[in-house]
């Protein structure tokens, strides 16, 4: 098989007494959208933050095209980082800037894109996500779902090579969710970008992602194609993708 674009090799991370990642091995391939699934609070966001360097592993390494990122010189590291774009789970919009300024910022700060071009690209992106007409509003004036879509517009406005989405569609209504998914799939067709998406949207992710990885108990317990995970006989995986936990359900029922 080809060399993975991003590769986790025995990555460990703990916060105080709370060991979150306990030997993660994961491969992400160029041109594919990889979904990371797993229970809430299991460490999916932590894993995603390691890819872009917001968090550093305690142990183990993360490789980009076969080279360990933490061993790279600063210049090379920055060059790698520039290929990425990150959409935060909590949106992380700049709350004292307007929506337009938020989405324009990644283009504006580079100082290389002319003003008219910035304007055109920002308006295009907002229109695609059904957000036209709110350019002058502030994030606190929007609903949760709208903020998510603004965050997505901001992540995609620079046409990045690799996009990391942290729960991009959680909290969206079914129609907007489908639009967002369609947009990610469309992007991949036109730009051939690489995506890593933390998501709870089962089964939707099986249709838009080429690869699924499941995080549980600090490790990746499965990685492979959507077909493979759907045919998996592993109980933990089967329960998760069917939304069933027999013990918990039984306990909840017997409490009544």
């Amino acid at each position: 098989m080809t060399v993975p674009l991003i590769e986790f090799n025995q990555v460990f991370k703990r916060f105080g007494d709370n060991a979150v990642l306990k030997g993660v091995d994961l491969s992400i391939y160029q041109g594919q959208v990889t979904a990371i699934i797993g229970k809430s609070g299991i460490g999916k966001s932590v894993l995603l933050k390691h890819i872009i360097g917001l968090l550093e592993p305690d142990q183990g390494e993360i490789r980009f095209q076969g080279q360990a990122i933490n061993a790279m010189p600063a210049v090379a590291r920055r060059a790698v980082k520039m290929k990425f774009s990150y959409m935060f789970q909590g949106t992380a919009l700049f709350d004292s800037m307007t929506i337009y300024e938020n989405v324009a910022l990644p283009l504006k700060e580079k100082g290389q894109v002319p003003f008219r071009e910035i304007q055109r690209r920002v308006r295009d992106k907002l229109a695609q996500l059904d957000l036209a007409g709110i350019e002058d509003k502030y994030p606190s004036q929007l609903s949760g779902g709208m903020k998510k879509r603004v965050a997505m517009a901001r992540a995609l406005v620079t046409d990045p090579e690799i996009v990391l989405f942290d729960e991009p569609t959680t909290g969206l209504d079914p129609i907007r969710k489908n639009t967002a998914h369609a947009m990610i799939a469309q992007y991949q067709k036109t730009f051939g970008f690489t995506g890593v998406m933390v998501s709870h949207e089962i089964p939707d992710v099986f249709y838009i992602c080429q690869r699924i990885a499941m995080l549980d108990q600090g490790r990746i317990i499965f990685q492979g194609s959507p077909a493979e995970i759907q045919n998996s006989t592993e109980p933990a995986i089967r329960q998760f993708i069917r939304g069933q936990d027999p013990e918990a359900t039984q306990a909840a029922l017997s409490e009544r």
């Binding site: 980082k81 520039m82 990150y86 919009l93 910022l105 990644p106």
Partner: peptide, 25 residues
Amino acid sequence: AEIGIMRISEQIDALETMDINPVRF
């Protein structure tokens, strides 16, 4: 207060992911 709120709501992390130096910005 302003910078503190930006820190806790991940806005400073967001700057970093956009390759905007937060100290400079």
